[in-house]
Design a protein around this nucleic acid. Structure first.
Lengths: 339, 339
DNA sequence: GTTAGCACTCTCAGGGCGAGAGTGCTAAAA
DNA sequence: TTTTAGCACTCTCGCCCTGAGAGTGCTAAC
């Protein structure tokens, strides 16, 4: 627990540093934030803050910079969460109602909105039900011996795959098979499907094996990166001057398996925004970055909304925006998919 | 037309520069490429090459660097196209047969392969038929008053959208409607659909209006960027030391509308690989980059395979790989979708 | 407990300098 | 006529030095 004055100084340092990206001098704190004390007093307090690990100096005679611990204290106790203004909220809502009613578009728009309002990278993953469950399947004839298998998952995501046919079939036959299998297998996961392959006709069996494979692939894939936006915004931050930082971050985004290691696991509880600051992140190569994340969707199928940026992040705004966007997606999903 | 020796010198400069990313000295050319002449002779020839605009010097006493014109001559007459080795070809083929039979996966894999073998950014767009045509549609019940409209396009791409229902309907009814509409509207484009909305029942009309909207959206969207890979590879090239270059390129990739301005238009003729070098590109902000592109797919629906990198590109390998991948995709598509 | 004053430390931009790389030119050799 | 050795010249690059400026910590007075 910091004294009130020290807390005020820490807050000043954090906010000024976030703004200016420059180490903060005692003079600036004294003049700009705490009018009635002299820089010398501030300096004395700064020494204490530094001893306790809330701030540090890049070099002997530079100003102070918040440490991860300092940011943590700020986020915990000093930050004011910055919800979007009512007009902005309305505007964003309006944007959402203008795009097609498709999960992918919502996710993309959500990421765009986040990246635009906080200068950081936004990642939105599609909600996933684990295990994935079948809602409906359909076979569409492409050629004499080739059909397209269209699988609708419980969460209304659609997956497709080509399916070679053992014998020529007409669209009517394919439709009938699709309908009958859909009715029999609706709501089942990969395991259920596998366990009930016995007793199917050879053709039906081929179809359901493909369906099971799709469901399994869905379960395996760590995250479907529905949308990543704001790379440009993030990389234009001064901390990415050094090219190595850029490559670091790109490495994490390209190897799709690594997205899972970027986002918090387990997902934060509903309605809560989780903030991971710098070295708090288990992945040590992310120690210079912060992640602000929230879950959305139903308990059975949640997606993640996240912002990733340098630790020098506008936490107040980031948390406010992530909360807003997550609850907006919640609303939209509830309206569309119900319980 | 260059004399044989000058051409040999130009080739040496291009190949050495592509390798080393450093201006090439006369000494290097003499020793490494043309053993029997002295650096002085090379220098004399270089003066001529420079006068004619094939090479240039970054500053008075540096080695030489190819100009766009130099690269053009190299690509046109000196380059040896580097097809993948047979074993590599087989390996890649094998990889393709291992992924699910889905266009998206193929496109992604194609981009990964390209980016890995040429250190550059790979862009693969999905084949598009213009105008887009309906192959099949399906309605899946989600809630009492909400269905998922699944639209299969002629090229076996799948699009979906939520569709509010005016009245409660059972899955059987929805299926029947889907089947009947599919049969009546198969093979039609947006305009056809619009022109035949009269005479449909209100419900059918709602569905087909949504379908028309989807087809129109498909026609409008300039390119579906099916896969972009190799950002990391591309950005680790020395020409991206300066951060502005990085932001430039990212700008082009993020604004999805701009992908259309990156890729050559009209698409190169079948079986041909088009090379656009530096300032030859109509988009002036791409004057430091080269694009190597080929079309694939059927005449009625072509996609593009492209590599984007700094002008200092391994053209021989790039052209060979693009040709190989494009023809591989051709094969796969032909096998899957027939005529 | 606070503050003015001051010496101290460190960074940063600029200038000078020497080493090195590579050239163009000239004059001799082939 | 072409090639080449030799050499002076130019330009970059890394290095060191320096002075200005920023910001601190400490001390002593308030």
């Amino acid at each position: 627990m910091l004294t009130e004055r020290r807390a005020a100084i820490l807050r000043s340092i954090v906010e000024e540093y976030v703004d200016s990206a420059q180490p903060v001098a005692s003079r600036v704190v004294a003049l700009k934030y705490l009018g009635h004390v002299s820089p010398a007093t501030i300096r004395n307090e700064m020494v204490r803050l530094e001893e306790e690990g809330y701030i540090s100096q890049p070099h002997t005679s530079a100003g102070r910079v918040p440490s991860d611990k300092g940011y943590r204290y700020y986020v915990e106790r000093l930050m004011r969460e910055e919800a979007p203004s009512t007009e902005m909220g309305l505007m964003v809502r309006h944007q959402f109602h203008q795009v097609e009613e498709r999960l992918e578009d919502w996710a993309r728009l959500a990421a765009v909105v986040l990246a635009a309002h906080v200068q950081a990278l936004a990642v939105v993953t599609a909600p996933r039900q684990r295990p994935a469950r079948l809602r409906w399947l359909e076979l569409v004839k492409l050629q004499e011996l080739l059909a397209l298998l269209v699988v609708v998952l419980q969460q209304a995501q659609v997956r497709q795959q080509l399916l070679p046919l053992p014998e020529p079939l007409e669209q009517d036959d394919l439709s009938a098979i699709g309908r009958s299998l859909s009715e029999r297998f609706a709501g089942q996961d990969a395991q259920d499907v596998r366990s009930r392959l016995e007793g199917l006709s050879p053709l039906e069996r081929t179809v359901m094996e493909a369906v099971a494979a799709i469901l399994e692939a869905e379960d395996r894939s760590s995250y479907e990166p529905a949308a990543i936006e704001g790379l440009r915004e993030a990389l234009s931050q001064p901390e990415f001057q050094e090219r190595e930082r850029v490559l670091d971050l790109l490495g994490f985004l390209e190897g799709s398996g690594r997205l899972g290691r970027l986002l918090p696991f387990p997902a934060p509880p509903r309605g809560q925004v989780q903030v991971i600051i710098g070295s708090e992140h288990p992945e040590s190569s992310l120690r210079h970055y912060s992640v602000v994340a929230a879950a959305y969707g139903q308990p059975s199928a949640t997606g993640t909304v996240a912002l990733v940026g340098p630790t020098r992040l506008r936490y107040g705004r980031a948390v406010g925006m992530v909360r807003f966007v997550a609850s907006l997606l919640d609303e939209l999903m509830a309206a569309s998919f119900g319980g």
